[in-house]
Design a protein around this nucleic acid. Structure first.
Length: 416
RNA sequence: GUGGACGUGGCUCAACGGUUAGAGCACUGGACUGUGACUCCGGGGGUUGGGGGUUCGAAUCCCCUCGUCCACCCCA
């Protein structure tokens, strides 16, 4: 067996990268229009960063990180997500001297999980973070930007759910309430949730086991237990979302898997095409993280989009590539002239590949077809003598004799 | 980490434990020496994922291993 890529690590082939590029460019141009600037972050960080930000008892940290000692024995981790590195950079470079900082980034993340449709060990995210804005309006604006991004790409069947997790004021009290409730229901919960009672009782709320759903039906609701400040914030988020034309669906049971979230959290799921890994974007507010990582108190809101999942939703909807022209020269003299002509046409912006193979015109036309040519441009002795080429429209099965200097404009104007 | 399905030419798939593992598509040569997509005829291409076992005989049955997919867990 020859060497293959590592399990869960994929090559993105040319047939795919067009769509990827289209997605990234759409994100970049929209995010820029909202005042975001790009940040490029390292792929490896000190393990400590993720332990402190994501939380030591989360699944990501407990069992999904690629962690290893470097040659000096320092512990390093392949980043499992982008927010922590972004915040680390924000603090390290004192970007907080600006009134508000808006960052976006793209790149690979790594989690050691069993691969599945839409889930890989190296996966790509487009992330965005608003650092230094406490206003519920920031939440709503970032969400509306995200919805606009999905709409621009014509993503179908994506729905937004939001929730509020409260803050240091109200969450501990709620947790306590929930803890006591769950203790009373212990007999009816699944094994996992029994463990969660102690580690992270909130997680029991979004357990999919039928018994647990039943057992937590009457559980105290998070949304109803928010303190005044959080409740007001949440109300304003919903208010502003409506101003942006978004009718948010509140899901009081949605819990996120990272410890740093406070107040608003959300998830965008696709109802078809992704199987069970159907969250295509998610995020929320993290008002304490910057402080926890050594910066000044800085309320933030951010999200990440899953590239592979989005690409799965968009497959087949790819924008058409620019038309491809295949150039076929017949004979030595034509070949010589062809070097000059092809170069000029490329300079004029059309995509041209030369078909160098030996063999009759028939064979070479066949190859042109197989290459996916929209046009075949033929230069033989007859054409050479008259200063023209034969331009064949492969899709329409029509051809014309065209002067050398008119080729580029005719092909560019055909607009396939 | 758990459970299930599946690994056969480049691709999609056939082949009851029994000749030399086949077909379609793709590739290649020709019919057709300046016109692809249609047609006809020929050609190349396989350690049946890998290793072990059972058997006179294994793609087929058993074990191990690797991989893919799906689901759980969890997440983007």
């Amino acid at each position: 067996m020859s060497i293959t890529a590592i399990r869960g690590f994929n090559d993105i082939l040319p047939g795919q990268t067009g769509l990827w590029r289209q997605i990234e460019q759409t994100a970049w141009s929209i995010f820029r229009a909202y005042g975001f600037g790009e940040i490029r972050l390292p792929i490896v960080e000190k393990t400590e960063l993720f332990l402190r930000s994501i939380g030591e008892t989360t699944d990501i940290v407990e069992k999904e990180m690629y962690t290893f000692p470097d040659r000096h024995g320092d512990m390093m981790t392949l980043r499992p997500e982008g927010t922590a590195p972004a915040v680390r950079a924000f603090v390290e470079h004192k970007l907080y001297t600006a009134p508000v900082t808006k960052l976006y980034y793209t790149g690979p993340m790594f989690r050691y999980e069993r691969p599945q449709k839409g889930r890989y060990r190296q996966f790509y995210q487009i992330g965005a973070e608003v650092l230094g804005d406490e206003s519920p309006r920031a939440d709503a604006e970032a969400l509306s930007m995200l919805m606009k991004f999905f709409a621009t790409l014509k993503v179908k069947g994506a729905s937004l759910q939001i929730n509020s997790l409260g803050d240091a004021n109200c969450r501990p009290a709620y947790k306590e309430k929930l803890y006591n409730y769950l203790k009373g229901k212990a007999g009816e919960l699944c094994e996992n949730c029994l463990r969660r009672i102690e580690t992270n009782p909130l997680r029991a709320l979004d357990c999919k086991a039928a018994d647990c759903i039943e057992a937590t039906k009457e559980a105290p609701s998070l949304v109803d237990s928010l303190c005044e400040g959080c409740a007001a914030h949440f109300d304003r988020v919903k208010y502003f979302l409506r101003l942006y034309g978004i009718d948010p669906l509140v899901n009081p049971r949605m819990v996120r898997g990272l410890d740093y979230y406070t107040r608003t959290t959300f998830e965008i799921t696709a109802d078809t095409g992704l199987g069970s890994q159907n969250a295509v974007a998610a995020g929320g507010r993290y008002d304490r993280l910057v402080e926890e990582l050594g910066g000044p108190a800085t309320p933030c809101f951010g999200f990440a989009i899953g590239m592979e999942r989005l690409a799965l939703l968009l497959e087949g909807e790819q924008a058409l590539a620019a038309p491809l022209t295949v150039f076929i020269a017949l004979g030595d003299e034509a070949e010589k002239k062809g070097v000059e002509l092809v170069s000029a046409w490329r300079g004029a912006g059309i995509r041209v590949v030369e078909e160098f193979s030996a063999g009759g015109l028939k064979t070479r036309m066949k190859r042109a077809d197989r290459l996916g040519a929209d046009f075949a441009v033929i230069l033989g002795e007859n054409e050479l003598n008259e200063g023209v080429v034969t331009v064949k429209d492969m899709k329409q099965a029509r051809q014309d004799t065209v002067a050398w200097d008119k080729v580029a404009s005719i092909i560019a104007g055909a607009g396939h």
